[in-house]
Structure formats: C-alpha cells, structure tokens
Nucleic acid binder design. Structure first.
Lengths: 191, 191
DNA sequence: GAAATTTTCTAATAGTATTTAGATTTAGGG
DNA sequence: CCCTAAATCTAAATACTATTAGAAAATTTC
C-alpha cells in the first residue's frame, strides 16, 4: 500500500472520529489535522474541501454496512430459511455499525444536520439500503417468518431505530453483536 | 403573560428549531436572532451565553417527555393492567416527542456531540428517565406482560431507539402517535 | 546519489463568530 | 404626558476558521 493511500486513510479515520464526536460544523479542519499529526494545509492535498472530506466519510459509513449485510444474507443457504437470513442481516448491520463506529455514527448523527446539497447526493445510497431491507422483510413475511398483520414499513423503521441507537449505549469494546442480534430478532420476529 | 416571557419563549422555540436543523456548533447566535426577528445582542439580555441557551433547550426537550409519560402512566387505572400502561407510556413518549419535535430532536441529535460539562449537567435527568422506564418494564414483566426470558435492559434500549428514530422518518404533521404506539407494542409485547 | 516528484509546512488572507459596551427606543404606571 | 425601567439596537473588540500560495522537506526514481 502506497504511503499516500495510508495517509489518506489516516485522515479519513481521524475525520470520522472528530465528526462523530463534535458534529459537522463543530469539527475544525485544524482539529482533524492535529489529531492526525499534521498541519491543516496538508489535508487539502488529499481533499479539496472540508465538505468533500465529510461527504466521503458519510458515504463510507453507509457503504460498509450495506455491503456487509448483503454479503451476510447471501452467505445464508436458502434452505436455512428467512429467520436465519434476518438474523444474519441484523448481526451484520450491528457488527459493522460498531466495527466502523466512527464512520457509522458520523453518518447517523450528522445526516439530519448536513447541508442540503450534501444530503441530496447521499440519498441514492440511503434509499438503496432501505429498499434492500424492504424486499428482505417482504420475502420474510411471505415465507411466514413475520405475521401477515405486521406493518412492514413501520417494522423496518423500528428495526433501524433499535439497531442504530445501539451506537449511543453499547460501551466501546463491549459489543456482542451476535447476542444483541439474537435478542432483537427473538423479540421482533417469530421463528 | 408578560411580554418579556413571550420573547424568551420565542427565542427558545427558535433556538430549538435551529439547533435541531444545524446542530450545536452549526447554529450561530445570529441565525437564532434573525429567525426570531431581532439582533444577536438582544439574545444576551435573556441568556448569558449560547451554551446556556442550548442547555435550556436540551433540558426542556427531555423534561416535557418525562412529565407527559409519567402523567399518562398514572392516568391508567391499575385494574387495566400493564399492557395498557406500557401502551400509554409509548404513546405519550411518541406524541410529546413530535409535538415538541424541535426540542426533542435538538436533544437527541446533539447530545452526543455536546461539550462534556454540558453533558454532565444533563445526565441526572437522562438517568432518571431511564430509571423510570426500567422500573415500568420490571413491573410489566412481573405482571406477565413480558416473557421472563426477555432481557429488559436490551428491550429498553431497543424501545428507545425505535421510538426516537421516528423523529427521522415521520413526516411533519403526519404523526399518528396512537397508531404507531399500538403497532410497536403489538410487535414488542404480549397482551 | 542526484534529479524529479510527492508530500508537508509556514505564513497570509478574507471572512465569520461570540460577546461586551454603551446609546437608543419602547412600554407602562402614576 | 412624563419618568423610569425594560428591551433592543449599533458598533466594535477579540478570537477563530477555511482555504491558498509558495517554500521546504521527504520520498521515489533512475
């Protein structure tokens, strides 16, 4: 790996941490630079503006989760059924959410306070992820894992809320994604 | 009501809206002032600093919900049982959350990015609200409304997440708190 | 190991933010 | 109406912030 790529990655990691903790406007380019052990001007060698760096962090936060969930669901053999698929999806979402907690949290915490033009460029990805879950839940309901009288749109929103909120209360390093996922699915779905 | 009190309230309402939309650091005293139809300096007649104004908004956001939930639960006659009490609590949380959406959302969105000294002064209230729910859920479980094998700490966190996330997806003016509460309780609890 | 390229730094610019001081206006009671 | 106190404003002090230009240092290439 090129040095340049490692530096770029270090800036992104540091920026994610700062954006998570201090918010979009509360994070100063200088904070990121000092925490990454360089001067503010050097950031501009890798990113054309603070906004572009922020957008990149947002995108990574969601992309990592989406890909992990998709992989996890596809890895479940069809014969295992939809309860197992849902469990895998929830566990993948939770474990990636926390493994890349600075990116995910930077995204979740700040999205609603992000300038409109940035929000709009992120919407495609967001909607795609929502759509992926929508279809997963429909399939699960058709397979009998969810009662027919459950409102899937609501269920999906409740599920996102429950999962994402874990960033606010799970103590760092204390994550047991499998356990959390098992309990959540146990509460929400029927085997 | 005194003019002075109305102006103070107008500043608070405007500040809550701005803090919700732009975050703690992203909100400028001048933004609040202009949106409230005055000059920035006038804010300082009512609040000693931006921080103090922000703290006040945070506190209101949580206090209103706590009080509404407590009242709602107490209004349920004991003979109705704990499913009804839980339903009342969820509905009160949701409807207050949205009725004072700027305050609640300012609190929920920004708490994690708030400077430490402010966070610490808010913790008492937060913990008290958490404790209130903890006891409510314990009582419900003992009454048989929640299975004995459900982990109540987790359930409480999932419940908070599901409820609070609604601020991010319920369209303004489209809230049906009773419906949302019914569906959420239907999914999480057993009658 | 010298030249070329990449990376990082120092220093300056131009624009904004919070907060204070003190002047000015507004509102209400007598 | 006038006087006082409350409320608001203008203007300025002081301190930050994102970004750029161009020099300096480090790294890579030959």
């Amino acid at each position: 790996m090129l040095k340049s790529d490692r530096t770029r990655q270090r800036i992104l990691d540091t920026a994610a941490r700062e954006f998570r903790q201090r918010g979009y406007a509360g994070t100063k380019v200088n904070d990121i630079a000092l925490a990454a052990d360089m001067r503010a001007a050097s950031i501009y060698y890798y990113f054309e503006s603070k906004d572009q760096l922020f957008e990149e962090v947002l995108k990574i936060g969601l992309t990592l989760i989406f890909e992990a969930v998709r992989r996890a669901v596809e890895a479940v053999p069809d014969k295992e059924g939809y309860y197992t698929k849902l469990l895998a999806a929830v566990e993948a979402h939770l474990s990636t959410l926390h493994e890349y907690g600075d990116y995910s949290s930077a995204n979740i915490r700040n999205f609603g306070q992000t300038p409109n033009d940035i929000q709009e460029r992120q919407l495609g990805l967001r909607n795609a992820y929502g759509e992926y879950w929508r279809e997963l839940l429909i399939a699960a309901q058709e397979a009998g894992v969810l009662r027919k009288d459950i409102n899937l749109s609501l269920l999906r929103m409740y599920l996102f809320g429950a999962m994402n909120w874990s960033l606010e209360w799970v103590k760092p390093g204390k994550l047991n994604a499998a356990g959390l996922a098992r309990e959540l699915c146990h509460t929400l779905f029927e085997k």
